[in-house]
Amino acid sequence: MITINALNDVFPILIQGIKITVSVLLASIVLGYLTAFVAGFCRLSKNVILRKITGFYVEVFRGTSLIVQLFWLYYAFPILFGIEVGSNFWAGVLAISLNYGAYMSEIVRGSILSVAKGQTEAATALNMSRFQRMRLVVFPQAVRMMLPEFGNYLILMLKSTSLVSLIGMTDILYYGDILRSSNLSQAPMVYLLVLIFYFILALPLIWLTRKLEGFSKKGVASQ
């Protein structure tokens, strides 16, 4: 009986956090993939400076902790450089998308490089320009290879949105923490529900990843 009451108390409060979690996720997905493609292509560029700068970005963001990056963006940057990223929403979204963008740029780069060389040669023999070879032949095949990995990162991104509670955003975990601090005995129930919330949010992403895997098996010539 006690647990059921607790559930009735906890559930409506936690659900308030869903909106923040989902909006941070969606914004991070859009910005994260954009970053991944831009950085991935920059690393394949003929321009050495562009390649080096992007490589530096990727290594820094892959090599340091996401929480620390988040704190840098939200707390340190405004003090050091007077740069305000706007709000804790944008600080969170930027940290997540720059971090995951760095990882995913490696997927973009690796996939493009792993399209068989003969594909580019056949396109050259048909007198396609460099841009046409990429757009019509290499990229469509590379994307198919990227998709399953991208799906995995979707799920990782969802989970990392819980970090924004640390910069005061009212997401699912934030409400969970509030509930726990007001009544410690409810902690197991609260965190169980938090887990379930994240899992339910992840379900469509897991399903999507499976779909993408199936799709990506078709139509690729890899080396």
């Binding site: 068989a116 003969g118 594909q119 040669e121 056949a122 396109a123 023999a125 048909l126 007198n127 396609m128 320009s129 046409q132 019509l136 032949v137 469509p140 095949q141 198919r144 078709k218 139509g219 690729v220 010539a221």
Partner: peptide, 26 residues
């Protein structure tokens, strides 16, 4: 024009698309 030992057809396109893409875009 060139024909290769390992064909190098574009696997993400149909046979027809393989033969139409270059005339249209190039």
């Amino acid at each position: 024009g060139m024909v290769f030992q390992h064909f190098n057809l574009f696997p993400h396109m149909t046979i027809l698309q393989n033969c139409m893409t270059a005339p249209i875009h190039v």
